[in-house]
Design a protein around this nucleic acid. Structure first.
Lengths: 193, 193, 193, 193
DNA sequence: CATGAATGAGAATTCATTCAT
DNA sequence: CATGAATGAATTCTCATTCAT
């Protein structure tokens, strides 16, 4: 009522986020999404060509928002600060937007080749950014001469694993700041005694 | 052809592994699985109550096989050996059985609550085993006093991330032994300079 | 642009002729017709109660225009001249207005009972006029004592068959005058040796 | 129960003939056809890939049956006998199988390009056969030197026009033999006095 | 036990029509 | 009058599951 156009489109995307997160692509019914968005079924098709298209656009939207987050963290001047902030903000973000976490952290089984490629590219970009940061850190002498690509996967894998534990598997309360701090230390110093 | 009973059941499970891995749960059709198994559609229902049931049993079967693997590794007396062997064997196993990797490493979107719980329990058991080993290692003084649960997630997350890179995203050839060695070192010593 | 009222109505009828001819009733979309007419979808409903109504009115309009044509021909004083002119003008008319031909010559599958009756009545009126002319010709001694109704169907069927051949089935160029002349002769003298 | 396979397929084709004839392609619902055939909706799709496919196969089937009819008539040694028999049998056939008439005599609006071509080819073949017969008749001196193609259209157009009158437009009883006799005479001798 | 023909519940999508602006 | 965003009824088609042979 206040927002001119894009209003309905936003409602639909919000509803889709919720429903896709809760049920996954195949179990999410367009009728449910429309109902959750408070619009008619037909209206969904005014804004999105198909269910697949809706899902793709949602994914893109979510990844981009998330990437923007990462880009800010990447500004951090030293590796330790970078890692701690990366963990902290990732976990907070996921905690605050659990449905988004559920979508971003899930492997979406072959919906179609194009979507697959889209997802792959988005994830790779995230890894590339991280690897680039790590390479620079290595040149600054903040990282041992390990493969930046391996290190990026170590970090990304840890974030995903923690995300899974925290959001999929349990309802436990937790403190992102504390966990982030410990996680960053483990990455930097290893676990060896 | 005359191999006892359970023969057809095995054929179906093998076919299901292949088809579910290639297409995911919802895109896999019972008709395809039956055809790949060389049996009639109706026969699938002689051995499995439903498509969901087939998937659940397959998952259980695959996790158990994988867990057995882990249990042997767990025998390793020292942490460094444990980690290297864990990475090496995990990656080799996934390399040799890419379809199984595809199933075990994927988040299967909510098929139903029971399946969800099953998957969760299986993954948790794996983490528990790992955490238990790490706790013992800490007591042996091989690990700094970090949370075994965090460390288990660090390791499991790294394996999953590497698995994704290697099997989902690229077709690159790679040497599990070399990667395992580097990975184990990174876990033990961290990446900090 | 300023042409009185009924301007928009004419635009819509013209667009409808084109679209219905090209795609048939069920494949023609109101949105397409509105776009072709350069008006909004809602505007179509200002002038026509429904899609069916639009089609009905179009049909009526087209038949009436065609009937007017026939009425002039009917003035012809002798049967030979009548036939030749009937064929010539029908074919020329259809050649000049192929979309109209496509609509008038088609059997439109049951859209609804009322439309059915409308079409029937229009076609019957055409046949009646022709039969009436033929009856008069018979009385003038220009026609053998055959049933005027049969003769009217012979002529109308021939026109329709030629129309189909010429407009539906091929893209061949042809000379309406030459064909009309031959057709009229065949009707008058028969084909028997 | 007696007839092995093809039983259900025949039931479906028979039901489809009835429903398509009564309602046309777009108004015929698969659910209606299935119900009329006494089978489930899904069963229709066991035998036909799609609604379009069902319609195409039906059309082909009907045209072929009709063509077979024509081929027998074509055996007639003299033109007069040929024409009379052609009219008589066509009208009787249509009278006995009104639904088939309704399908064969209708212009099916652009369902798709392939179906269009199929219909066109079938109708052209019929005309070709007739034209070939007429050419031979001309060589035997039974027909004046008129274009066989024009003559074929004259005859086919007359049959179609009579068919429309008799089956679409009225419920009148009529005697195919009497009409056929008069029609054949009109074709041979013309209507000119 | 094995089979696959038959089934129908269920879902995505289309599009004529309405109505607030 | 004119418009086009919103709507949902209606329809095709898919596929897990059953069951007679």
């Amino acid at each position: 009522m206040t927002r001119a156009t894009g209003d309905k489109r936003q409602q639909i995307l919000a509803a889709a986020t919720e429903i896709f997160a809760a049920r996954g692509f195949y179990q999410a019914k367009i009728a449910d999404i429309a109902a959750a968005a408070g619009v008619g079924k037909g209206t969904v098709y005014e804004y999105f060509r198909s269910k697949k298209d809706l899902f793709q656009q949602l994914l893109l939207h979510l990844f981009n928002a998330h990437l923007d987050h990462l880009l800010k963290v990447v500004q951090e001047p030293d590796l330790a600060g970078f890692l701690e902030r990366l963990f902290r903000e990732s976990l907070s973000y996921f905690q605050a937007h659990q449905e988004i976490a559920r979508i971003l952290l899930s492997d979406h089984p072959p919906i179609d080749a194009a979507t697959q490629r889209l997802l792959f590219a988005a994830k790779q970009e995230k890894l590339q950014r991280m690897a680039a940061y790590l390479k620079a850190a290595a040149e600054r002498g903040e990282m041992r001469p390990v493969s930046p690509w391996m290190a990026a996967n170590l970090i990304a894998g840890f974030i995903a694993a923690l995300g899974h534990q925290l959001f999929f598997d349990s309802d436990m309360d937790f403190d992102p700041a504390a966990i982030a701090s410990e996680a960053a230390a483990m990455i930097l110093q290893g676990i060896g005694g």
